[in-house]
Every structure is written in structure tokens, then in C-alpha cells.
Amino acid sequence: KFRVRQKVVTVDPEELADFDQELKALLQESMEQRKLELRGRPALNMTIPMSVFEGSGKDHHFGRLVGENGEELLDEENGEQREVQVKVLVKRGNKQQTRQMLIPSDCSLVQSTKQKEAAELEE
């Protein structure tokens, strides 16, 4: 295609510091607000529909990324998968739903589980 000469983006350090300060304040405020909100609340109850775990059976592993022709998509360089498929569990009103989504395989969310999978396999 073609190339556009890029400007070097420099973020003003003062602006950065100011932004970080506001961000921190917002976080702090959120946490405190949260404590106030929860003071009088009853115990929390997290329901996870077991159905989402069903279907994947005993063979627990992260979904593989599959291309249009059914072949597995692998990272060209080291044969590793760059992205893996996950199910995101969300609530819509009172209903639970899952949605498929791709996340990078080096995301911490995946990494630890993968390590465990590997460990379990070795056992």
C-alpha cells in the first residue's frame, strides 16, 4: 500500500501526571463509595449456572480458534495459537447468557489455566 510519515506522538508529562492523579482519585472515590453502598446489604449470592460447564465434558480445555475451512489457526512463527476462544458469561435481566469471544493466548486470564492444564496432563 502506501506510507504516511507519522508524527512522533509525545505526551506532555504534565498532562500525564494530571491525568493519572484524576484517575487515581476516581478509583479511590469508587472504592469508598462502594463501601458505603454495601454497609447495609445482605450477604451476596453468586449463582453460576452449571450448564455452562456442561458440554465441555471432562476434557476441559480452552476452545481452539478454528478457521473458516475447519483448520486450526496457528501462529506462523512458533506454531502456538495466538488467540483462544472463551465463553463470556453475562446476565441479561435475570437470564444468563454466554457469548463467544477471542482473547490473546498470552493474556494472564488464559495463561494460568493453561499452566494448570499442562500440570494436570503431566500428572
Binding site: V52, V84, K87, V88, L89, L109, T113, E120
Partner: peptide, 20 residues
């Protein structure tokens, strides 16, 4: 600002959960 994802230990399932 309080939300983050966690995953099921051995499953390809993730949810959003507040940190506190």
C-alpha cells in the same frame, strides 16, 4: 473502574466481577 475478568479454573468460561 472496579470491574475485571476472572476465568473458571479449568474451563474456557470467563465472567466480569467487581474487585470489591
Amino acid at each position: 473502574f472496579l470491574l475485571g475478568f476472572i476465568s473458571a479454573k479449568t474451563d474456557s468460561v470467563v465472567v466480569l466481577l467487581c474487585r470489591d
